[in-house]
Write a protein that binds this DNA or RNA. Structure first.
Length: 890
RNA sequence: GGGUGGUUAGCUCAGUUGGUUUAGAGCGUCUGGUUUACACCCAGAAGGUCACAGGUUCGAUUCCUGUACCACCCACCA
């Protein structure tokens, strides 16, 4: 016999091990079955799993288990990401703290530091692996990958080479966002904008007044820009020169008229430019072929051009420069309330300084990509796959956001000045340059930079499917690798990419870019974006604040992985953030326990009847069915239908709720209660088996544990069981309607009891007393019941302590319709019926109008029209019945 | 500055192309209860002008327009 409460701690690890050893997670590339593939977004190998990962794992596991049970060849490929900047900065900080080494890069040198990072990553990957298992993730560990694996590195190098050959990768002097703290370039997407209040100074610059929040960059400014239509400056012409007294003496300055760079309504309407340290200024300088000069070095200190300020860090120099200009009488005014946004590195949190550097870029506008028999740019391909619906994003609104992002997309800077990552496969010897993974010979030096981490993760859906043994054969081309890797052939494109909406641009867009280019295929058919987990107060969960932060590793032992999974899935809709807190998780723990106890009850009934639950065979020995049995079997069919349809359409929350409500509100509260009068063990077992199947993707552990007790003899684990299909022959709407009527009557009697204040001591028999007295009427919907008639029911009730007095009678086959006779208050009934008729007629007219509407019919899906027609038919039948009954009154 | 989402019961949220939902759930609150699984339970109750203002419609929480507040994203305001 099962214990009184479900204990997840005692089962989960054992069950997971059983699944893993049974080979159920392992996908077969030779299988003839339709593939279903998810590439797990690889967690950063920098530490621990958090709730964001837990949501991802729960969602993807549900998709995968459902597909597997549906008979698809399901592959869920797990892995980890080397997370270049993030990892390097974590390890450097760690060394600084633990080993008290100020500059770990200088201290250890490249080779040794990379080794140390690799060690750290090894440990972290092991932690993550065990944590993913704790969530019950049914992923194929035999195919686990890591973004720095040799075979993935091969793919990175091959793609780089191909892009270089196509002229899509180029090296150039461009303005980039430089993180002086991490000493590397960061990409546009790795920048956060933080609001900051800073004094906004206006200075006299020759005859002009210019404003700036960054006077320390202004040493080399020799151009003053204004809008060509600005009336205030119409006496100046483009190219006019003048001499202005400036920070370190007079400068020769030139007037520039430009309509793109300047907003005449802002400030004084004119500005000086600093092309080396400002994006807009850089672009203007590029257009006009203006000279540019570096003012701030790569460590964030002023260069010799600053004269007496040279060598000072920015924060120190700024007030001093202002002071000097003030002394010279050039400070016009200071706005202390000015608020602007400063760029901060997402990872290192250092203030980003635009700098001009030689970097590697991917050209997103060059139309050299072969796609659908046309030459397109990377940008165009990225737009095309979404616009043509090759890839569908869920929820759809993110498509708009995606397009907007692409419209503003500029060339992607892929080189990083850090050591942890894929080394750029380019070699130099004097002026010569070669692209390749290995040195072309003596005297060649490899580019010291590494690639942006998203370069390799952009290949994730397919680089993970390349056969690692083939990847060692350097004679093969990229196309050969794709053609000859069985996994790639079977499992690509993947089915669905499930990830947080926060990395739509970072990652999803980049996978589309890299994969379409490198393989000629889309990386995935669907993108399912989940929301971010927040605290009860709607704040972001942060590790730095443990009071608000829920750690999945503390929750799982306490409430079980199943409860955690449900709490993150039900009540959550794609693309929207959701709040998680302990009471919610406890609520689903209660549900798991309810299911557990319902199963105990079923097993007890079997024992009582001398039936072996494992011996219950589908179809055989069911015995005679009561109305309640038929109603249950019938509603199970619609449940299967709804669950299947819901999961197919990724409506996980709704489907979870439907299953929850079926189990608790229907199966437990009604069917099991009715079974206390008289039970049919075969039906009980059959129903429970179906329920456990349908719930398995959501809560795999408890259902698997129950399956061990109720599954047929000789059956394998639940994870391998086929998904239930509805049986038409079990559908019995009459039985459902009759049971519903019974439920309605019982409910009505109960509320009657409450209304007349029957003493609590009287408990259930009080219902009977009330009924027997014949004084009370039950008014329910259009029916007014005289309870004297119902009193008949008590006679046939034989249950020792009937919880629902009327129930047993029902099971004995008393025709419920009889109860409706002997109506007392005829006028009331008539009124009710008439009201119901009026409402129904109105409704039917509405539905008819809808079906008659051409626009609706043209736009609606066939199944929607079907349901509308069904509504109409049902309504008309009901109306007919009402009419008949009304006729009786005449 | 541009864009997206949100605003439904004390709290957290559902609500599938306008009507059979006189607005639903979970938690919390209150009342009553240990009954052949389950107190991680059972039976009930209270609690909502579906943010506001207009419009379309026979009918709007649902569609349209505007307003307010909240959140997020994007952008080169010096």
């Amino acid at each position: 016999m099962l214990p009184k409460a479900y204990d997840p701690k005692a089962c989960e690890d054992r069950i997971y091990q059983m699944w893993e050893e049974s080979g159920a997670f392992k996908a077969d590339a030779k299988s003839k079955k339709e593939p279903f593939v998810i590439s797990m977004p690889p967690p950063n190998a920098t530490g621990q799993l958090h709730l964001g990962h837990a949501v991802m794992l729960a969602l993807e596991d549900i998709f995968t288990r459902f597909a597997r049970m549906q008979g698809k060849e399901a592959l869920w490929l797990p892995g980890t990401d080397h997370a270049a900047i993030a990892t390097e900065s974590v390890v450097i900080k760690k060394i600084q703290k633990e080993e008290k080494i100020k500059d770990p890069r200088a201290h250890y040198g490249r080779e040794k530091l990379v080794e140390k990072i690799a060690e750290f990553v090894q440990a972290s990957r092991a932690t993550i692996r065990s944590q993913v298992r704790k969530m019950g993730a049914s992923c194929d560990w035999s195919r686990e990958r890591y973004t720095l694996d040799a075979s993935l590195n091969r793919c990175v190098n091959e793609v780089f080479k191909k892009m270089y050959g196509d002229g899509l990768i180029y090296r150039g002097q461009r303005i980039v966002s430089w993180d002086p703290k991490m000493q590397t370039t960061v990409s546009d997407d790795e920048i956060e904008h933080v609001e900051e209040k800073a004094p906004f100074y206006t200075f006299q610059y020759g005859p002009f007044q210019i404003s700036t929040a960054r006077p320390e960059t202004k040493f080399g400014d020799k151009y003053v820009v204004m809008h060509p239509d600005d009336e205030r400056y119409k006496q100046y012409k483009d190219g006019d020169t003048f001499t202005a007294e400036w920070i370190n003496g007079p400068v020769q300055a030139t007037v520039i008229k430009d309509s793109d760079a300047i907003d005449p309504a802002f400030g004084t309407g004119c500005m000086t430019i600093t092309p080396w340290h400002d994006m807009t200024d850089f672009e203007l300088a590029e257009r006009r072929k203006l000279p540019r000069e570096q003012i701030i070095d790569f460590t964030g200190r002023l260069m010799p051009v600053a004269g007496e300020f040279a060598g000072m860090p920015i924060e120190e120099a700024r007030p001093k420069v202002v002071e000097k200009l003030k002394e010279k009488g050039l400070l016009v005014k200071v706005d202390e309330n000015y608020v602007h946004r400063i760029a901060v590195s997402y990872r290192g949190k250092g203030v980003v300084e635009p700098q001009i550097k030689e970097q590697w870029f991917i050209d997103v506008n060059k139309p050299v990509v072969e796609w659908k028999k046309k030459k397109m740019s990377l940008k165009q391909v990225m737009q095309d796959v979404i616009r043509s619906k090759d890839i569908r994003i869920i929820p759809e609104r993110f498509e708009k956001i995606y397009f907007h992002w692409i419209d503003n997309l500029r060339d992607w800077c892929v080189s990083r000045q850090i050591w942890w990552g894929h080394r750029i496969p380019v070699w130099y010897k004097g002026e010569e340059k070669r692209v390749g993974a290995v040195s072309p010979g003596p005297g060649w030096m490899q580019d010291p930079d590494t690639l942006d981490t998203w370069f390799s993760s952009g290949l994730w859906t397919w680089s993970t499917l390349i056969d690692p043994t083939l990847a060692t054969d350097t004679s093969l081309s990229l196309q050969d690798l794709l053609d000859r890797s069985p996994d790639f052939q079977k499992f690509h494109p993947t089915t669905v990419m499930e990830t947080g909406y926060d990395i739509l641009f970072f990652w999803v867009a980049r996978m589309i870019l890299m994969t379409t280019y490198a393989t000629g295929q889309i990386p995935f058919k669907h993108v399912y974006l989940h929301g971010l987990v927040r605290t009860r107060d709607g704040k972001k969960m942060s590790k730095s604040d443990p009071s608000t932060c829920i750690d999945p590793l503390e929750i799982i032992p306490k409430y079980g992985a199943d409860a955690l999974r449900l709490s993150m899935i039900v009540g959550q809709s794609p693309g929207n953030d959701f709040r998680l807190y302990e009471e919610k998780i406890a609520g689903y723990r209660n549900f798991i326990n309810k299911l557990w106890n319902a199963s105990r009850f079923v097993l007890m009934q079997c024992e009582k009847a001398g039936v072996d639950p494992k011996g219950v065979g589908d179809g055989a020995g069911v015995g005679s069915l009561s109305v309640a049995d038929r109603a249950l079997l019938s509603s199970l069919q619609s449940l299967i239908d709804d669950a299947t349809q819901g999961l197919k359409e990724y409506r996980l929350s709704e489907t979870g709720e439907r299953l929850y409500s079926f189990v608790w509100d229907y199966f437990c509260d009604w069917y099991l209660e009715l079974s206390k009068g008289e039970s049919n063990p075969a039906v009980l077992v059959h129903a429970l088996r179906t329920i456990v199947h349908l719930l398995h993707p959501y809560c795999p552990f408890v259902t698997e544990e129950l399956w061990a007790s109720i599954g047929p003899k000789g059956s394998g684990p639940l994870i391998r069981e086929p998904w239930p299909t509805p049986e038409k022959k079990s559908i019995d709407r009459d039985a459902e309607a009759q049971l519903q009527l019974l439920i309605d009557i019982i409910t009505a009697v109960r509320s009657l009891r409450a209304e007349y204040g029957v003493t609590p001591e009287a408990k259930i028999p009080s219902t009977v007393h009330a009924v027997r007295s014949g004084e009370f009427l039950v008014q329910h919907q259009a029916h007014v019941l005289r309870l004297a008639n119902v009193s008949e029911l008590t006679v046939v009730s034989k249950a020792p302590a009937p919880r629902h007095g009327v129930v047993s009678a029902f099971l004995k086959g008393v025709d419920i319709q009889l109860l409706l006779e002997g109506v007392v208050d005829l006028t009331k009934v008539k009124e009710n019926l008439e009201a119901e008729r009026a409402q129904l007629q109105k409704f039917l007219a509405g539905v008819q109008a809808k079906l008659g509407n051409e626009q609706f019919v043209a736009r609606a899906k066939p199944e929607v029209i079907e349901t509308e027609k069904q509504k109409l038919a049902d309504g008309e039948a009901k109306l007919k019945k009402i009419e008949e009954r009304l006729k009786a009154f005449a």
